[in-house]
Design a protein around this nucleic acid. Structure first.
Length: 439
RNA sequence: GCGAUAGUAGCUCAGUUGGUUAGAGCACUGGUUUGUGGUACCAGGGGUCGCGGGUUCGAAUCCCGUCUUUCGCCCCA
């Protein structure tokens, strides 16, 4: 027997329909925000990812040499492909660019709760706009997706932070430009590491000041309101005014989006990646347990880094399907879908062929229809009709066939009505419009 | 890559100090039923007990290895 590779999943119909439910919501809400769907290759040159993330990334990729001796990798993320695409079309694209994608991604990592080697991600990015209203639009989209999936403010929260604020605060603490990436990285990890480990990392970045810096960082991480932030920034002069203004703008835009109730100001969010430049955020289940449901932020210089010539500001976020499915399931928000036809044909052996012709008419009229492939009795066929979950049985015996009619039985109410075969589709639509057949 | 946990039918699980032909429920298929359905009753199919080796007269059971699952570490784009 063969099994799926570790970290990969099969999707039999029920699981597939649950997955497609997520996809449907992603697409519908993204369109409501006027984001355009795009796609990119699943297989890319290995260097595309090395360029962005460094050589260490290779160990976490599915990669191999193709038959033309090209080093290639299954995509672990979409941003580099997006940057290439945007850069290729350069300045000819009207701004802002609002694009989204829904696709499978691959990472060669140890499978764990909420993390596999193959997973689906919804990516939304907004490029060519520097104003915070763009960042707010994306968080608005994220919130709208979660709300459409049935979650409320009791179910999830978005922790909002700002890299620019961190950079100013750290500058104020005497952290040099060169040491910044390492310090930010240590801050990002500090939430899931022992304090000693963080201090060690900080000492490496800034010799002998790790301990005092760690004290300050812990204080900053506790900031959870605009007032507290303003107080802390107060010592920085005019730079502080600009930062506070950005925060105020952001929060008032989020209010306008109806997203404010989901937002927690939380400076402990930094995100591991070096390329974030502005607001960053992560969505979590309300209890704070588990992996992030989604994450994103502003990355104003990444496109230039990857493309070499086109400089375009950008922000975006991604939602992974595994943590989200787990979360929705635990809240009973992933209903089991009934994959049922609308109609089921019940007929005598003599009427099989004309029955299938009738089925063909119903199908063209938009009604999903099944029938038994075997010659079995009426009783058996009714049993199968019931099991199929169909709303109506189409009954075609000698009585009906002789008079070019067909009996329609509402399998929920048990009521029946004999109608002309010519009017099948229109009568079925009528039955559905009035809530079925009643006696 | 490291540590822990588990693996018996499609699913959930029994299986005695090692002892005859490995079981149950659900699911599936067929029948009771050749014009009225999901119930009921009856029957059936389906297992190299994860895989490989070892101990033993005899292994689902004990030992070793290996693969896979789940959880944690590392990492988390």
């Amino acid at each position: 027997m063969f099994e799926t590779l570790p970290g990969f999943r099969d999707f039999p119909p029920e699981a597939c329909s649950r997955r497609n439910h997520l996809f449907r919501v992603f697409r519908t809400v993204a369109r409501a925000f006027d984001f355009k769907e795009y796609d990119a290759p699943i297989l890319e040159p290995l260097d595309l990812y090395v360029e962005k993330s460094g050589a260490e990334i290779v160990g976490q990729l599915f990669h191999f040499m193709d038959k033309g001796d090209r080093p290639v990798a299954l995509r672990p993320e979409l941003t580099p492909s997006l940057a290439r695409m945007v850069a290729a079309q350069g300045n000819s694209l009207p701004k802002p660019i609002k694009w989204f994608n829904l696709g499978e991604h691959f990472r060669y990592e140890r499978p764990q709760k909420g993390r596999g080697r193959s997973f689906y991600q919804f990516n939304a990015d907004l490029l060519g706009e520097i104003n915070v209203s763009a960042d707010a639009e994306l968080i608005g989209l994220l919130v709208a997706i979660f709300e459409t999936l049935g979650m409320s403010s009791n179910d999830f929260r978005i922790r909002l932070s700002d890299r620019a604020t961190w950079v100013s605060l750290l500058n104020g603490l005497g952290v040099s430009e060169q040491a910044l990436p390492a310090v930010l990285n240590a801050i990002d990890k500090s939430g899931r590491r022992k304090p000693e480990q963080t201090m060690e990392s900080l000492n490496e970045a800034i010799p002998d000041q790790g301990e005092s810096l760690w004290q300050e960082i812990q204080n900053i991480k506790k900031i959870d309101s605009l007032d507290a932030l303003a107080k802390r920034l107060g010592t920085l002069g005019s730079e502080a005014d600009a930062l506070i203004h950005q925060w105020e703008e952001m929060l008032s835009f989020l209010s306008a989006h109806g997203a404010k109730e989901y937002i927690s100001i939380d400076l402990s969010i930094v995100r591991g990646l070096a390329y974030y430049t502005g607001f960053v955020y992560e969505a979590f289940e309300a209890s704070g347990e588990g992996r992030a449901l989604a994450g994103g932020g502003r990355y104003d210089h990444l496109v230039q880094k990857l493309s070499g010539n086109v400089d375009i500001p950008a922000c975006g976020f991604a939602i992974g399907d595994m943590t989200l499915s787990d979360c929705l399931e635990s809240k009973g928000l992933l209903p089991n879908y009934v994959l049922a036809p609308d109609l089921y044909l019940v007929c005598g052996e003599e009427q099989k062929k004309s029955g299938i012709s009738l089925v063909s008419v119903a199908r063209k009229g938009g009604f999903s229809t099944s029938y038994s492939f075997k010659m079995v009795g009426f009783g058996k066929q009714f049993k199968e009709a019931g099991k199929s979950g169909a709303r109506y049985a189409l009954i075609l015996g000698t009585e009906e066939a002789d008079s070019k009619r067909v009996k329609v039985k509402d399998l929920r109410t048990g009521a029946e009505e004999v109608i002309s075969q010519n009017s099948l589709v229109e009568k079925l639509e009528e039955f559905d419009a009035t809530g079925g057949i009643t006696t």
